[in-house]
Simulated assay, not measured.
Amino acid sequence: MKLIELCNLLEIQMEVQEKLIEFEKNIDFKGMEQELEQMKHPECWEGALERLKSLLGSDEDGMKILTCQLRCVCDTYDKYEELGISKEIFIATMKFFTRFLQDHKDRHGSFRYVWAWWAVRQISMVEYRIGELEYEMRMKDNRFWIDIHIPADADMTIGKLRKSYLEALDFFKKYYPDFAGVDMVCGSWLLAPTLKNVLPENSRILQFQKSFEIEHIEEDSLGFMDWVYGGRDIPLEELPEDTTLQRNLKTYLQNNGKIGWTTGKLISNPFCEG
């Protein structure tokens, strides 16, 4: 697959596409073959990214490294086909790029790519979006587990979440049997028990929480600020109030409330009605 074909498949914004196509003509991909290849291997991510950034030089809006990573995604597409993984899952997984580009545009008024450090997961095929949720395969000290990530555009209705979970069980059983039936865990501000203080009882987020057993809470983490307000260095009085959640949460924080970051393990039969 060629870069322009990938951009069209993922519906990459035209303003971004124009920059990518121009950079593709001028970047010396031959001189960075090793770094590009290493981005496809989890154990090499960190060093490969640092060396690649050094080779690319000034890249204020991140479009150079985005060009490189999308070239890698073209190779990843071939691997999906070899394994027989559907194009639907490929598109859903790789629209990570499109979504975060648009998010930066919406929040800051311009397209900028700052997620190269995360995209290696999609490139190296350890993370897949299946339905509404993303599933990342993890392994340490001979222990296998799956991290669940919640995309910003996920439909959090219980039926959609359960459908995603059941499809994920089938997916890993078929393509990655070592990960069939392993624990699934989620670390997110969305699991914070204190959200009950700012959300209505019938909130989809509170319903989502019921499918997890809490394992750890970082009470002082400000990670939730990135997702709710777009940054954690905004003074309390200047926090935006564009949504009901932002308004309610702002009031709660101004009264010394905390949200933090919570890790939980998915229960054995999750996302059931009632």
Score class of each variant (00 low, 15 high):
Q207G: 06
R71L: 08
F271T: 08
A119F: 12
L190R: 13
R247G: 02
C72E: 11
I146V: 04
K19V: 03
E167F: 07
G159P: 01
L56G: 01
E127T: 13
E219W: 09
C74G: 06
T93A: 03
M139C: 12
A192L: 00
E215Q: 12
T76G: 06
S54N: 15
E273V: 13
I27L: 10
I27N: 00
G84I: 14
R129K: 12
R247C: 06
E5N: 13
A119D: 08
D153V: 05
K160H: 11
A152F: 10
R107G: 03
T243I: 04
G57P: 10
G109N: 07
E11N: 15
I130P: 01
I150Y: 05
E43T: 12
G257F: 04
D141N: 15
L169T: 07
L20H: 06
M39W: 02
I259Y: 00
Y77K: 12
E134W: 02
R112L: 13
T157H: 11
I217E: 08
L9A: 14
Q209K: 04
W189R: 03
H41A: 12
Q122E: 15
E15T: 13
L49T: 05
D75G: 04
F271C: 03
K95S: 11
F96Q: 03
L166T: 14
E18P: 11
L239F: 04
E273W: 11
F179H: 07
L55H: 10
L253P: 10
R51S: 12
C186V: 06
R138P: 00
D226R: 10
R51P: 05
A116Q: 10
Y135C: 01
I89P: 01
W118C: 10
C272L: 15
L52K: 00
E43W: 10
Q69N: 07
T244Y: 10
P42Q: 07
E237T: 14
G131V: 08
R138D: 05
I234Y: 00
I123R: 01
F29H: 08
D226Q: 13
T67L: 00
A154I: 03
C186H: 00
W118S: 13
L3I: 15
K163L: 11
E219H: 13
V228M: 00
E82I: 10
S188Q: 09
Y175H: 12
E5M: 02
G159N: 13
K30A: 11
E237N: 09
G260H: 01
L266W: 09
D106A: 10
Q17R: 11
C7S: 07
I158W: 06
